[in-house]
Structures are given as structure tokens and as C-alpha cells.
């Protein structure tokens, strides 16, 4: 079962790098670990018969977003800022709570697991997705443009291009 092997390997990769994001002191390392984790997830997407999204995952997340993160980290020269653990109660509750949350979720997810998959291949290539996107989802799709526009405007406004300077 090569599929299982691939799954477990990349699942392990995803989890380990995710943990690194959370645990490693250096944000640069964290960002790189996140990229790795996202790559692992892209593999999962392929396993889930969604190659188009896998590609998107790599391009958008690993390619664009994470680069942006890294850029900001570098720009602000943050890699030297290492944090001392403070607020022990907050830390403890954070670890314990999320662990409990995760364990509980895993327990119930396996309890209510649906084993059988429907027969036949799941067609989710770029063409199918694209056609659906521009038919049934045209309105949300257009709205995403506004969303992104707002985000860009916001980013410009907040990140320092002074209004006084603009004129």
C-alpha cells in the first residue's frame, strides 16, 4: 500500500514541521517549517484527488504567503528576537487545552468515522473547478475581488505609506 506509506510519511512531516512552527524560537525557522508543512499538505491534496488545489496550495501558500511572511520577518529584522517563555499559567493552559482539544477531536472523529468511499473517481481538475466557479459561484468569486481589494488598500494604509506623503 504505497498510498498509505505516502500518507503516513507526509502526515508525519506535516505534523513535525507544524510542531516546529509552534515550538521553535526563531521565527525564520518557523516560517520555513511552515512552508515544509504546507508542502506536505499539498501532497495530501494530491492523495485526495485534488491536484489543482495541491498546485494552488504550493503557489499561493508556499509561494506567495510564506514569502511575504519571510519578507516581513527579514524586513523587520525579527530573527534575532527570541522570546523568553513567560506567563506559565497561560503556557500551561495553552498546551493542555489544545492537547485536550486535539485528543477529543481525534477520539470523536474516529468514533464517527465513515469508512466507505463512493465508487468511481472524483474529478476535481482545474477545468471542472473553473467551470463551477464561474457558474454557480460567480457572485462569491466576484466578491473575493472586493475582499482582496480591501485587503490591499488596508495593507497600504496600515503599513506606512503616509497619507500626507501621498499627495
Amino acid at each position: 500500500m504505497i498510498e498509505y506509506a505516502v500518507f503516513f510519511f507526509f502526515a508525519a512531516v506535516a505534523v513535525i514541521f507544524a510542531l516546529m512552527v509552534v515550538l521553535h524560537r526563531n521565527p525564520v525557522v518557523g516560517a520555513l517549517a511552515l512552508v515544509a508543512s504546507f508542502f506536505a499538505l499539498a501532497v495530501m491534496y494530491v492523495l485526495l484527488e485534488a491536484p489543482f488545489l495541491a498546485a494552488l496550495q504550493v503557489i499561493v501558500y508556499a509561494g506567495a504567503i510564506m514569502v511575504l511572511f519571510l519578507f516581513v520577518i527579514m524586513l523587520l529584522n525579527l530573527q534575532k528576537q527570541s522570546e523568553e517563555p513567560t506567563r506559565p499559567l497561560q503556557q500551561f493552559l495553552g498546551y493542555a487545552g489544545s492537547a485536550a482539544f486535539g485528543i477529543g477531536l481525534v477520539y470523536y472523529l474516529s468514533k464517527y468515522a465513515v469508512m466507505e468511499l463512493p465508487a468511481g473517481p472524483f474529478i476535481a481538475d482545474a477545468r471542472t473547478v473553473g467551470i463551477r466557479l464561474f457558474e454557480a459561484y460567480i457572485f462569491p468569486f466576484e466578491m473575493v475581488s472586493i475582499l482582496l481589494l480591501a485587503a490591499i488598500v488596508g495593507a497600504l494604509l496600515l503599513s506606512g505609506v503616509r497619507m500626507e506623503e501621498r499627495t
Binding site: 466578491m143 472586493i146 475582499l147 480591501a150 485587503a151 488598500v153 488596508g154 494604509l157 496600515l158
Partner: peptide
């Protein structure tokens, strides 16, 4: 909700 949130952040 997200459109709203983004605008609110700003």
C-alpha cells in the same frame, strides 16, 4: 464575514 473583518481591521 471576512470582507467585513478585513475592513474592520483597517
Amino acid at each position: 464575514l471576512e470582507l467585513l473583518s478585513i475592513c474592520i481591521f483597517v
